Computed example of a mutant assay.
Amino acid sequence: MSITPESVRESLSSEDLGERLRAVNQIRDLEPAIAFELVQVAVTDSNSRVRYSAVSQFDTLGAQDLDLSLDILRGLLNDPEADVQAAAADCLGALKLQAAFDDLEQLYHSTPEWLVQFSIIAALGELGDPRSFELLKQALSSDVELVQTAAISSLGELGNVQAVPVLAPYATSSDWQIRYRVAQALGRLGGAEARSILETLVNDEVEAIALEAKQALQSVESHPQS
């Protein structure tokens, strides 16, 4: 049976959960404008698995109407399920919807869910809003290691060179994954202080860090900053 907008729409209203889950996955096979219309139906489903599968498609479909996507994703930040909230945060970042920064910041401070905090911090790097800097600095002190590493990466993506002295202490972390993320971030940020730290990290005992630092150093030296 071929997949058509009509068949998908009908299946999305089925009482059978399995059929609705198949339908929301079939949305990916439809023309973007139609898919965007149908994914809006799916994000209101009573089942969180359907809503999660639907909201996860906004990173590719949301550009069809950014204002509408902003409204929908903002609403989904209040979803009762943490994984749906996290997916909404991911998509707000991917679509660079900076108008949602305040919503993301508020949710970061109010949620008890580490997964939601992680998704917000990871999304802020893509979001590219300069206001994110202070929140990312706070996230470096998180008790959750994944939130910490996401903050390091997002500080690199954000591109504010003031992050270099903030990241410097983490270059000697006992956790090799944190040192690896710091090397990546410093390569993006550049500048004399970043170069100095990277020159130390090229001698790291972990080969992956040494290689990453070497590549980052080459990037910094080819794009010098004052």
Rank of each mutant, 00 (worst) to 15 (best):
N47R: 00
L211C: 00
L140M: 01
S110K: 12
S174Y: 11
F133Y: 12
N160S: 13
E134K: 11
S119V: 01
T149W: 07
S226W: 04
C91Y: 03
Q138M: 09
E105P: 04
G18L: 11
S153Y: 05
R20F: 10
I3A: 03
V41F: 10
Q162T: 13
E81A: 14
E145Q: 12
N160H: 12
N25I: 00
A86R: 04
Q98P: 01
Q138N: 10
S69R: 01
A33H: 08
N160M: 13
R9N: 12
E221I: 06
S153A: 05
D204C: 05
N160F: 13
Y108M: 11
A42E: 12
T149L: 14
A87I: 09
S2L: 10
H109F: 11
D129Y: 02
L38H: 04
L76I: 11
V166H: 12
S110P: 00
E10G: 03
V166E: 12
S219E: 13
D129P: 05
E6M: 10
S11Y: 07
R195S: 10
A122P: 00
L127G: 04
L136P: 08
I120N: 01
S69D: 02
A82T: 11
V116R: 00
R195F: 00
E6N: 12
V39G: 01
S173A: 15
R181D: 13
A33N: 05
L124A: 03
K137S: 10
L211S: 08
A151E: 00
A192M: 05
S222E: 14
R195V: 08
A210K: 02
L127K: 03
S13M: 13
T200L: 14
A185P: 03
S153V: 02
Y170Q: 15
G128L: 12
